[in-house]
Design a binder for these strands. Structure first.
Lengths: 144, 144
DNA sequence: GATTATTAGTTGACTTTATCAACTAATTTA
DNA sequence: TAAATTAGTTGATAAAGTCAACTAATAATC
Protein backbone atom coordinates (compact mmCIF):
# COMPACT_ATOMS: atom_id res chain seq x y z
CA UNK A 1 0.00 0.00 0.00
CA UNK A 2 1.46 3.27 -1.19
CA UNK A 3 0.60 5.25 1.91
CA UNK A 4 2.50 2.89 4.15
CA UNK A 5 5.44 2.88 1.74
CA UNK A 6 5.69 6.65 1.86
CA UNK A 7 5.52 6.52 5.66
CA UNK A 8 8.28 3.89 5.77
CA UNK A 9 10.52 5.92 3.49
CA UNK A 10 10.01 9.00 5.60
CA UNK A 11 10.85 6.96 8.69
CA UNK A 12 14.06 5.85 7.02
CA UNK A 13 14.90 9.42 6.10
CA UNK A 14 14.49 10.55 9.69
CA UNK A 15 16.52 7.62 10.91
CA UNK A 16 19.29 8.10 8.40
CA UNK A 17 19.43 11.84 8.93
CA UNK A 18 20.36 11.02 12.49
CA UNK A 19 22.94 8.43 11.43
CA UNK A 20 24.63 10.92 9.13
CA UNK A 21 24.40 13.55 11.83
CA UNK A 22 26.21 11.31 14.31
CA UNK A 23 28.90 10.42 11.79
CA UNK A 24 29.42 14.08 10.99
CA UNK A 25 29.57 15.05 14.61
CA UNK A 26 33.00 13.59 14.93
CA UNK A 27 34.27 15.86 12.16
CA UNK A 28 33.26 18.72 14.39
CA UNK A 29 35.88 17.51 16.84
CA UNK A 30 38.50 17.86 14.16
CA UNK A 31 39.99 21.21 13.26
CA UNK A 32 37.66 21.42 10.26
CA UNK A 33 34.00 22.18 9.85
CA UNK A 34 31.68 19.99 7.83
CA UNK A 35 31.57 22.23 4.74
CA UNK A 36 35.35 22.59 4.94
CA UNK A 37 35.79 18.84 4.82
CA UNK A 38 33.42 18.60 1.87
CA UNK A 39 35.42 21.23 0.02
CA UNK A 40 38.71 19.47 0.78
CA UNK A 41 37.10 16.25 -0.41
CA UNK A 42 36.18 17.81 -3.74
CA UNK A 43 39.66 19.20 -4.28
CA UNK A 44 41.34 15.98 -3.20
CA UNK A 45 39.39 13.85 -5.63
CA UNK A 46 39.35 16.33 -8.52
CA UNK A 47 42.65 18.20 -8.54
CA UNK A 48 42.48 21.22 -10.84
CA UNK A 49 38.87 21.79 -9.95
CA UNK A 50 37.65 25.39 -10.01
CA UNK A 51 35.81 27.27 -7.29
CA UNK A 52 32.82 27.49 -9.57
CA UNK A 53 32.70 23.73 -9.95
CA UNK A 54 32.72 23.28 -6.18
CA UNK A 55 29.91 25.79 -5.88
CA UNK A 56 27.98 23.66 -8.38
CA UNK A 57 28.85 20.31 -6.81
CA UNK A 58 28.12 21.23 -3.20
CA UNK A 59 25.52 23.92 -3.75
CA UNK A 60 27.27 26.42 -1.52
CA UNK A 61 27.57 30.19 -1.92
CA UNK A 62 30.55 31.49 -3.87
CA UNK A 63 31.40 34.15 -1.31
CA UNK A 64 31.32 31.57 1.44
CA UNK A 65 33.61 29.33 -0.57
CA UNK A 66 35.90 32.21 -1.46
CA UNK A 67 36.52 32.97 2.20
CA UNK A 68 36.95 29.32 3.06
CA UNK A 69 39.58 28.95 0.35
CA UNK A 70 41.34 32.07 1.64
CA UNK A 71 41.71 30.47 5.07
CA UNK A 72 42.90 27.23 3.47
CA UNK A 73 45.51 29.20 1.56
CA UNK A 74 46.61 30.97 4.72
CA UNK A 75 47.03 27.58 6.38
CA UNK A 76 48.93 26.33 3.32
CA UNK A 77 46.45 23.53 2.69
CA UNK A 78 45.24 24.69 -0.70
CA UNK A 79 47.03 26.48 -3.53
CA UNK A 80 45.52 28.35 -6.43
CA UNK A 81 46.89 28.30 -9.93
CA UNK A 82 45.57 30.77 -12.43
CA UNK A 83 44.59 29.22 -15.74
CA UNK A 84 46.79 30.17 -18.67
CA UNK A 85 43.90 29.99 -21.09
CA UNK A 86 41.41 32.03 -19.10
CA UNK A 87 42.98 34.21 -16.46
CA UNK A 88 39.63 34.62 -14.66
CA UNK A 89 39.75 30.98 -13.65
CA UNK A 90 41.68 29.69 -10.64
CA UNK A 91 42.45 26.01 -10.45
CA UNK A 92 42.53 24.62 -6.95
CA UNK A 93 44.87 22.01 -5.63
CA UNK A 94 45.89 20.62 -2.30
CA UNK A 95 49.41 21.22 -1.07
CA UNK A 96 51.34 18.24 0.29
CA UNK A 97 50.21 19.36 3.72
CA UNK A 98 46.61 19.67 2.57
CA UNK A 99 46.67 16.16 1.19
CA UNK A 100 48.16 14.86 4.41
CA UNK A 101 45.57 16.59 6.57
CA UNK A 102 42.73 15.38 4.37
CA UNK A 103 44.04 11.84 4.39
CA UNK A 104 44.09 11.85 8.18
CA UNK A 105 40.48 13.00 8.26
CA UNK A 106 39.56 10.48 5.63
CA UNK A 107 41.23 7.69 7.56
CA UNK A 108 39.42 8.70 10.74
CA UNK A 109 36.10 8.66 8.93
CA UNK A 110 37.00 5.29 7.52
CA UNK A 111 37.67 3.77 10.91
CA UNK A 112 34.49 5.30 12.25
CA UNK A 113 32.52 3.24 9.74
CA UNK A 114 34.78 0.27 10.34
CA UNK A 115 33.95 0.39 14.05
CA UNK A 116 30.27 0.15 13.24
CA UNK A 117 30.82 -2.80 10.92
CA UNK A 118 32.88 -4.59 13.55
CA UNK A 119 29.79 -4.82 15.68
CA UNK A 120 27.95 -6.72 12.96
CA UNK A 121 28.18 -10.25 11.64
CA UNK A 122 29.76 -10.58 8.22
CA UNK A 123 26.38 -11.52 6.78
CA UNK A 124 24.86 -8.33 8.15
CA UNK A 125 27.75 -6.31 6.73
CA UNK A 126 27.22 -7.78 3.31
CA UNK A 127 23.50 -7.24 3.46
CA UNK A 128 23.95 -3.66 4.59
CA UNK A 129 26.20 -2.86 1.65
CA UNK A 130 23.96 -4.70 -0.77
CA UNK A 131 20.88 -2.83 0.37
CA UNK A 132 22.64 0.51 0.17
CA UNK A 133 23.89 -0.19 -3.31
CA UNK A 134 20.43 -1.27 -4.42
CA UNK A 135 18.80 1.83 -2.96
CA UNK A 136 21.23 3.97 -4.92
CA UNK A 137 20.36 2.12 -8.12
CA UNK A 138 16.61 2.37 -7.61
CA UNK A 139 16.70 6.05 -6.72
CA UNK A 140 18.93 6.76 -9.70
CA UNK A 141 16.15 5.35 -11.91
CA UNK A 142 13.63 7.71 -10.32
CA UNK A 143 15.95 10.64 -10.98
CA UNK A 144 16.07 10.16 -14.75
CA UNK B 1 36.33 -7.29 1.64
CA UNK B 2 35.96 -4.88 4.53
CA UNK B 3 37.77 -1.99 2.90
CA UNK B 4 35.46 -1.98 -0.08
CA UNK B 5 32.46 -2.29 2.20
CA UNK B 6 33.48 0.81 4.11
CA UNK B 7 34.03 2.68 0.85
CA UNK B 8 30.59 1.61 -0.40
CA UNK B 9 28.93 2.75 2.79
CA UNK B 10 30.66 6.12 2.61
CA UNK B 11 29.56 6.46 -1.01
CA UNK B 12 26.01 5.74 0.09
CA UNK B 13 26.30 8.33 2.82
CA UNK B 14 27.42 11.01 0.38
CA UNK B 15 24.67 9.98 -2.00
CA UNK B 16 21.97 9.94 0.61
CA UNK B 17 23.12 13.23 2.11
CA UNK B 18 22.29 14.78 -1.25
CA UNK B 19 18.93 12.98 -1.43
CA UNK B 20 17.95 14.25 2.00
CA UNK B 21 19.29 17.69 1.13
CA UNK B 22 17.08 17.88 -1.95
CA UNK B 23 14.03 16.69 -0.05
CA UNK B 24 14.69 19.21 2.67
CA UNK B 25 15.21 22.04 0.26
CA UNK B 26 11.50 22.48 -0.12
CA UNK B 27 11.08 22.93 3.63
CA UNK B 28 13.39 25.90 3.33
CA UNK B 29 10.73 27.52 1.19
CA UNK B 30 8.24 27.13 4.01
CA UNK B 31 8.14 29.48 6.95
CA UNK B 32 9.96 26.89 9.09
CA UNK B 33 13.54 25.78 9.29
CA UNK B 34 14.48 22.12 9.11
CA UNK B 35 15.07 21.64 12.83
CA UNK B 36 11.82 23.46 13.53
CA UNK B 37 9.89 21.00 11.40
CA UNK B 38 11.58 18.09 13.17
CA UNK B 39 10.62 19.47 16.54
CA UNK B 40 7.02 20.01 15.44
CA UNK B 41 7.04 16.44 14.15
CA UNK B 42 8.12 15.08 17.51
CA UNK B 43 5.48 17.02 19.39
CA UNK B 44 2.77 16.13 16.88
CA UNK B 45 3.40 12.41 17.13
CA UNK B 46 4.11 12.27 20.86
CA UNK B 47 1.87 14.77 22.59
CA UNK B 48 3.00 15.32 26.17
CA UNK B 49 6.61 14.89 25.16
CA UNK B 50 9.20 16.82 27.17
CA UNK B 51 11.94 19.07 25.86
CA UNK B 52 14.52 16.63 27.17
CA UNK B 53 13.01 13.80 25.16
CA UNK B 54 13.20 15.90 22.00
CA UNK B 55 16.82 16.71 22.75
CA UNK B 56 17.44 12.97 23.03
CA UNK B 57 15.45 12.02 19.97
CA UNK B 58 16.87 14.64 17.62
CA UNK B 59 20.30 15.15 19.14
CA UNK B 60 19.94 18.91 19.22
CA UNK B 61 21.19 21.32 21.84
CA UNK B 62 18.84 22.04 24.72
CA UNK B 63 19.45 25.78 24.61
CA UNK B 64 18.70 25.84 20.91
CA UNK B 65 15.50 23.90 21.55
CA UNK B 66 14.57 26.14 24.45
CA UNK B 67 14.72 29.21 22.25
CA UNK B 68 12.89 27.47 19.42
CA UNK B 69 10.06 26.50 21.76
CA UNK B 70 9.89 30.08 23.00
CA UNK B 71 9.28 31.31 19.45
CA UNK B 72 6.70 28.57 18.89
CA UNK B 73 4.92 29.67 22.02
CA UNK B 74 4.97 33.27 20.88
CA UNK B 75 3.42 32.18 17.56
CA UNK B 76 0.83 30.14 19.47
CA UNK B 77 1.89 26.89 17.80
CA UNK B 78 3.05 25.10 20.93
CA UNK B 79 1.87 25.21 24.52
CA UNK B 80 3.68 24.08 27.64
CA UNK B 81 2.03 22.35 30.57
CA UNK B 82 4.00 21.92 33.76
CA UNK B 83 3.87 18.42 35.20
CA UNK B 84 1.95 18.06 38.47
CA UNK B 85 4.23 15.28 39.66
CA UNK B 86 7.56 16.90 38.88
CA UNK B 87 7.40 20.65 38.48
CA UNK B 88 10.74 20.72 36.72
CA UNK B 89 9.17 19.02 33.75
CA UNK B 90 7.24 20.82 31.02
CA UNK B 91 5.04 18.77 28.75
CA UNK B 92 4.78 20.10 25.22
CA UNK B 93 1.73 20.05 23.03
CA UNK B 94 0.62 21.59 19.78
CA UNK B 95 -2.17 24.09 19.77
CA UNK B 96 -4.96 23.63 17.21
CA UNK B 97 -3.09 26.11 15.06
CA UNK B 98 0.19 24.23 15.53
CA UNK B 99 -1.43 20.98 14.45
CA UNK B 100 -2.94 22.61 11.38
CA UNK B 101 0.38 24.14 10.31
CA UNK B 102 2.21 20.89 10.84
CA UNK B 103 -0.36 18.88 8.91
CA UNK B 104 0.07 21.14 5.91
CA UNK B 105 3.82 20.66 5.99
CA UNK B 106 3.44 16.95 6.53
CA UNK B 107 1.07 16.57 3.58
CA UNK B 108 3.50 18.44 1.32
CA UNK B 109 6.38 16.21 2.37
CA UNK B 110 4.21 13.17 1.83
CA UNK B 111 3.39 14.09 -1.75
CA UNK B 112 7.03 14.86 -2.43
CA UNK B 113 7.92 11.25 -1.66
CA UNK B 114 4.84 10.03 -3.46
CA UNK B 115 6.01 11.81 -6.60
CA UNK B 116 9.29 9.94 -6.47
CA UNK B 117 7.56 6.57 -6.00
CA UNK B 118 5.28 7.27 -8.95
CA UNK B 119 8.32 7.17 -11.19
CA UNK B 120 9.15 3.62 -10.08
CA UNK B 121 7.62 0.23 -10.80
CA UNK B 122 5.71 -1.30 -7.92
CA UNK B 123 8.44 -3.93 -7.54
CA UNK B 124 11.09 -1.22 -7.20
CA UNK B 125 8.92 0.57 -4.64
CA UNK B 126 8.59 -2.56 -2.59
CA UNK B 127 12.29 -3.32 -2.81
CA UNK B 128 13.20 0.24 -1.85
CA UNK B 129 11.06 0.07 1.26
CA UNK B 130 12.31 -3.41 2.13
CA UNK B 131 15.96 -2.36 1.85
CA UNK B 132 15.42 0.75 3.92
CA UNK B 133 13.65 -1.19 6.62
CA UNK B 134 16.42 -3.79 6.66
CA UNK B 135 19.13 -1.15 6.90
CA UNK B 136 17.38 0.33 9.90
CA UNK B 137 17.23 -3.09 11.55
CA UNK B 138 20.87 -3.89 10.90
CA UNK B 139 22.14 -0.51 12.09
CA UNK B 140 19.95 -0.76 15.16
CA UNK B 141 21.83 -3.96 16.05
CA UNK B 142 25.16 -2.14 15.75
CA UNK B 143 23.91 0.59 18.05
CA UNK B 144 23.25 -1.67 21.00
C1' DG C 1 14.48 17.50 58.06
C1' DA C 2 18.51 20.25 56.46
C1' DT C 3 22.05 19.79 53.07
C1' DT C 4 23.87 18.14 49.00
C1' DA C 5 23.40 16.35 44.45
C1' DT C 6 20.72 15.92 40.41
C1' DT C 7 17.69 17.32 36.83
C1' DA C 8 15.08 20.37 33.45
C1' DG C 9 15.22 24.19 31.32
C1' DT C 10 16.85 29.24 30.45
C1' DT C 11 20.02 32.89 29.38
C1' DG C 12 24.27 35.27 27.67
C1' DA C 13 27.97 35.20 24.78
C1' DC C 14 29.80 33.36 21.09
C1' DT C 15 31.12 30.59 16.69
C1' DT C 16 29.87 28.60 12.51
C1' DT C 17 27.28 28.63 8.49
C1' DA C 18 25.07 31.10 4.94
C1' DT C 19 23.35 34.98 2.07
C1' DC C 20 23.09 39.36 -0.47
C1' DA C 21 24.77 43.05 -2.97
C1' DA C 22 28.42 45.75 -4.63
C1' DC C 23 32.81 45.44 -6.52
C1' DT C 24 37.38 44.15 -9.37
C1' DA C 25 39.65 41.97 -13.04
C1' DA C 26 39.73 39.38 -16.95
C1' DT C 27 37.49 37.68 -21.21
C1' DT C 28 34.23 37.36 -24.87
C1' DT C 29 30.96 39.56 -28.23
C1' DA C 30 29.34 42.60 -31.33
C1' DT D 1 37.07 49.36 -28.95
C1' DA D 2 32.87 49.55 -26.13
C1' DA D 3 29.50 46.59 -23.91
C1' DA D 4 28.33 42.39 -21.87
C1' DT D 5 29.78 38.18 -19.38
C1' DT D 6 32.22 35.60 -16.20
C1' DA D 7 35.10 34.31 -11.97
C1' DG D 8 36.02 35.50 -7.88
C1' DT D 9 36.47 38.98 -3.70
C1' DT D 10 34.84 42.01 -0.08
C1' DG D 11 31.59 44.17 3.30
C1' DA D 12 27.71 43.75 5.88
C1' DT D 13 24.67 40.97 8.06
C1' DA D 14 21.44 37.18 9.13
C1' DA D 15 20.47 32.52 10.51
C1' DA D 16 21.80 28.31 12.75
C1' DG D 17 24.01 26.05 16.34
C1' DT D 18 27.06 25.57 20.57
C1' DC D 19 29.03 26.21 25.21
C1' DA D 20 29.01 27.30 29.82
C1' DA D 21 26.98 29.45 33.67
C1' DC D 22 22.78 29.97 35.79
C1' DT D 23 17.85 29.29 38.15
C1' DA D 24 14.37 26.53 40.01
C1' DA D 25 12.68 22.45 41.36
C1' DT D 26 13.16 17.69 43.05
C1' DA D 27 15.48 13.62 44.90
C1' DA D 28 18.97 11.49 47.81
C1' DT D 29 21.34 10.89 51.96
C1' DC D 30 23.19 11.77 56.20
Amino acid sequence: MLKQQVADIRAFNRFYTRVIGLLNKYILNSSFTLPEVRVLYEIYYHESITAGEIVQALGIDKSYLSRMLATFEKKKLVAKKRSGEDARILFLLLTARGRKEFEMLDAAQYSQIENILKRLSSVDCEMLVTYMTEIKKILAKAAT
